[in-house]
Computed example of a mutant assay.
Amino acid sequence: MAERNQDEFLDDIEQAEAETYREDEIEISDEAAELDTVRAERDAFQDKFMRALADAENARKRAERDRREAENYGGSKLARDLLPVYDNMKRAIESIAEDQREASAGLIEGIELTMRELISVFAKHGVRVVSPQVGDKFDPQVHEAMFEAPLPGTKAGEIIQVSAEGFMLHDRILRPAQVGVSSMQG
């Protein structure tokens, strides 16, 4: 009977060890599951962080682009409103006859100085004159065809008359140059 008790005792020890091992296994699997959960949460937070970082960078770039646009093109309405002043001053200068130049030299010089100053201010703010010449090729990006007419000795699409100069604000058209275009076919 002592043997049996000893066998039972050994069985009891093995069974206790097995239960302890199962408990350790359960504890380890619980810890592994908890670790997996923590890793998944970490990955989710890292993903959210990276997205928020990218959104912030995109917002910064968009704000910088908007600031540049406002700086470069914010004055386009004022510049456009000043174009008729340029046109009128240019017409005034062009309409002065040679015999009038001597009699009104001071007045004419004042008008020409004012015109140069206006051109200087335009240039300072990125406004430049688009001044096509007769014989240039018509470009719909910077020219507006006011009329089309056949003119002997010209090719179709050639500028035959310039009615008004155009203006660019940096790389944008403020006003296209107004031109007449030849419709002659060679």
Rank of each mutant, 00 (worst) to 15 (best):
D55I: 09
Q141M: 08
A164I: 02
E69P: 01
M50P: 00
K124W: 02
E69T: 14
D136I: 10
P132L: 03
R91S: 14
E165P: 00
D136M: 06
E109F: 02
E71G: 01
I160M: 06
V130W: 01
R128A: 10
L107N: 06
I93C: 08
P150G: 05
A70K: 11
E69D: 15
L118W: 01
R101H: 03
T154V: 05
A164L: 08
K124M: 09
G75Y: 00
L107D: 07
V130M: 09
A92I: 07
V127R: 01
G166Q: 00
I159T: 06
L151Q: 13
L113H: 15
P140N: 13
A156E: 07
P84E: 06
A52I: 05
A105I: 06
L53Y: 02
E144H: 10
A56W: 00
A54D: 09
R67G: 08
K137H: 06
L82E: 10
P150S: 12
I108S: 02
N88H: 12
S163E: 12
R91M: 15
A164R: 11
P140A: 13
I119S: 05
V134P: 00
L107F: 08
V127N: 04
Q161L: 11
M146Y: 06
L83M: 12
Q133T: 12
E148I: 11
M50Y: 04
A149G: 00
M50L: 15
S104L: 09
G157P: 06
A149F: 01
E69Q: 13
E109Q: 13
D99H: 03
Y86K: 09
